[in-house]
Computed example of a mutant assay.
Amino acid sequence: MILEDRQDKDLAFMLKFENVAWYEDGKVRILDRRIYPIRTEFVVCKSHKEVAQAIKDMVTQSEGPYTAAAMGMALATYEIKNETDPEKIVAYLEDAAYTLSHARPTTAEQMKGIVNGAVKAAKEAVSKGVIGDALVDVIFKYAYDYENNNYRRYTVIGHNLAKMIPDNGTIMTQCFAGTVVGTMLRECRKMNKNIKLFCAETRPYYQGARLTASVACDMGFDVTVISDNMPAYTMKTKNVDLFTSASDVITMDGHVVNKVGTFQMAMAAHYYGIPYYCTGTPDPAHPDMSSVVIEERDPAQVIESLGQKTTMDGVKGYYPAFDCTPPEFVTGIVTDKGVYKPEDVHKYIEGDSEC
């Protein structure tokens, strides 16, 4: 299958399509972001359930789980390729869609849109008599188009965010904003903005240190890693111009759910008069925070570092994966339609242009 118009051109190694999550020959290969760049290894999944487990186990993060879920649907289609009964094919894919979308609770609603889109594409193809390997090709093409179009959309978001950064400015990031980091840096280069980045390390997975910093370094930008207790002091002493993060959920009333620690960084930015721009899109499935489930992960990960225990036996850990930043600490939500004030983010769904 010839795949054209690739939107990953000039992006870092870990943002290339094949290095995020990729279906081929009855397997899905996922770059293990838990250990990159210390080691460059891939987790190979031979069933859609293994893909769901990889998502749950944080093999991939940021935009990666969504791509993995889409590619997982192609793998599920491969698993059922010898079935000829259309109803059984669709039922199997619907079950796979549920398994993949519910691998992690906080992002289940966003995941549903992607995997249910694959089911819809399969239904349309099956209704025309497409089954077997031909159906696998259809769902892989759906997954590829999803990823490629997502990169195209994030290029617009990256451009809109890059416009907010002063020439030769300094920004601070939280966690790993995935594709938008790469596209924002690519757009900065086009604008001749040779920016500097300060990346909070983002324990316990160190996404900021290992992923965001790696993308920036790979693309030739000046990047410095700080520990998670240094952002406020660094904002002041290093003249940070802008704080930015991605989002796992943006509610329709302007709350931002993102990697735990975002809230305190947003408060520090607010105190120093530094704008905080969050990237993402509001989710109609979450009108407010009452519908958001904050995932709590294995507390043992807090009392270790990269597999090495750091506390005395008997010490407990606590690991909420996300926190919520209220609208009053958010300067703007950067989307593919423009930049919205958090209180106006509902206009994104209503079709209004940027505020």
Rank of each mutant, 00 (worst) to 15 (best):
I80H: 00
I80K: 05
K81L: 11
N82Q: 13
N82V: 09
E83P: 00
E83L: 11
T84D: 12
T84S: 13
D85S: 08
D85N: 10
P86L: 05
P86F: 01
K88G: 02
I89R: 00
I89L: 04
V90D: 00
V90H: 00
V90T: 04
V90M: 01
A91S: 11
A91L: 10
Y92M: 08
L93G: 03
D95Y: 15
A96Q: 12
A96S: 13
A96N: 13
A97P: 04
A97Y: 00
Y98C: 09
T99R: 15
L100V: 10
L100A: 09
L100E: 08
S101L: 05
H102Q: 08
A103G: 12
A103Y: 07
A103M: 15
R104L: 15
R104S: 10
T106S: 06
T107Y: 03
A108N: 08
A108P: 01
A108I: 06
A108Q: 07
E109V: 13
Q110N: 13
K112T: 03
G113M: 06
V115N: 05
V115F: 01
G117S: 15
G117M: 10
A118N: 15
V119K: 04
K120F: 12
K120E: 14
K123C: 01
E124D: 07
A125M: 01
S127A: 14
K128A: 08
G129E: 10
G129Q: 11
I131Q: 03
G132R: 04
D133T: 14
D133F: 10
D133N: 09
A134R: 15
L135G: 01
V136N: 03
V136D: 03
V136M: 11
V136A: 06
V136I: 14
V138Y: 01
V138P: 01
I139W: 01
I139V: 12
F140P: 02
K141D: 14
K141L: 12
Y142E: 03
Y142P: 02
A143S: 14
D145S: 13
D145N: 14
Y146E: 08
E147Y: 07
E147D: 07
N149R: 10
N149I: 04
N150M: 12
R152Y: 06
R152I: 02
R152Q: 08
R152K: 07
R153C: 00
Y154S: 02
Y154W: 06
T155W: 00
V156P: 00
G158F: 07
G158M: 07
H159A: 15
H159M: 11
H159I: 11
N160V: 12
A162R: 09
K163T: 14
M164Y: 10
M164C: 13
P166W: 06
P166Q: 06
P166L: 05
P166A: 07
D167T: 08
N168H: 10
N168I: 04
G169E: 07
G169S: 03
T170P: 05
I171G: 00
M172V: 09
Q174V: 14
Q174M: 14
Q174G: 07
Q174A: 09
Q174E: 14
F176I: 04
